[in-house]
Computed example of a mutant assay.
Amino acid sequence: MWWICSFLLSVIHIAFDMQDILKHYRSPRAEDYADILSFFATSYLLGISIRGITGIGYSDNGLADPLLNNTAQKHPEGKRESPYGNATLLQLITFSWMNPLFAVGIKKPLDQHEVPDLDIKDSASFLSNAFDDNLNHVRESDNTINPSINKALFLFIRRKAAINAIFAVICAAASYVGPYLIDDFVKFLGGKKDHRIESGYLLAVAFLSAKTIEVITQRQWIFGARQLGLRD
């Protein structure tokens, strides 16, 4: 339904463009060529969605299948290295380090040995040892036999919590950019202010940049909260 609506919208745009060109006897502009390219793109994607060559099924049986194959063989010796630990900055931002797992999961139910292990820094053994180190640090600094669990826990998660708080602040700040600029955007579209076309482009870029930053930081904030949950 999405690609059908997109295709019909492209057809309507081209129809209005052709009507305007024939009515005013003008040459096609860049917007007209963009609509034509959009028409070809939506036509191609509509054809793919109709033919169903993506391999994605929509039957109830397919949706009810388990994510892991119950008939999977015993987990082989050795561990699969987590792609999260070796991910680049761009892969961490876009979560593209999960693409290999998605590529397998879209074709068939996942076997147990196909799911990578947790990153070493999120494993129970690493977190347990790290918390013991913080607990011993509190015991030595306070010179007490019974150290404060709350203080050790604070030292244990303070760095991750601070980074997560920064993401939360940036996400909240970016979410206010749209409402802050909406008045100028409405005035620009209504012609109430004498703005040049460059001002409109700057407003559009500001809206897009703010929303992109908001989405990225929000995803990182939520993911970081899950990691903090493992540490707690």
Rank of each mutant, 00 (worst) to 15 (best):
F131V: 01
D142M: 10
K121C: 04
L118F: 11
F126H: 14
H113Q: 14
H137A: 11
F126L: 02
F126K: 08
D122H: 09
P116D: 03
S128E: 15
L118T: 05
F131S: 01
N129M: 10
D133A: 13
L127W: 02
D117A: 13
F131R: 13
T144R: 06
N143K: 15
L127V: 00
A130S: 10
V138C: 04
E140F: 04
D122V: 00
S128Y: 09
L135M: 15
S128M: 05
S125L: 11
H113R: 05
S141D: 06
F126V: 08
N129D: 14
I120N: 06
I145K: 12
N129W: 03
D133L: 06
S128C: 07
E114V: 01
D122R: 08
H137Y: 14
L135A: 02
R139F: 03
P116I: 02
D142L: 11
E140Q: 14
S128P: 00
H113W: 15
N129R: 10
N129F: 06
E140L: 10
V138N: 01
F131C: 03
T144P: 01
F131D: 01
R139T: 05
E140W: 02
N143A: 12
H113Y: 14
S125C: 03
D122F: 12
S125W: 04
D122T: 04
L135K: 09
H113K: 08
A130W: 07
D132K: 14
E114M: 08
S125Q: 10
H137L: 11
V138D: 00
A124P: 00
A124I: 10
N129Y: 05
V138A: 04
V115F: 11
A124Q: 07
L127K: 07
D117F: 09
N136L: 14
R139E: 05
S123I: 01
N136P: 01
N136M: 09
S125T: 14
L118A: 11
I145A: 12
D142E: 14
A130F: 05
F131Y: 15
V115Y: 05
R139D: 01
A124W: 09
D119G: 02
D142C: 11
D117E: 15
N134C: 15
D133Y: 13
N136E: 15
N136G: 03
L118I: 08
D117M: 03
E114I: 00
K121V: 07
S141P: 00
N134G: 01
A130M: 06
S123H: 04
D142G: 01
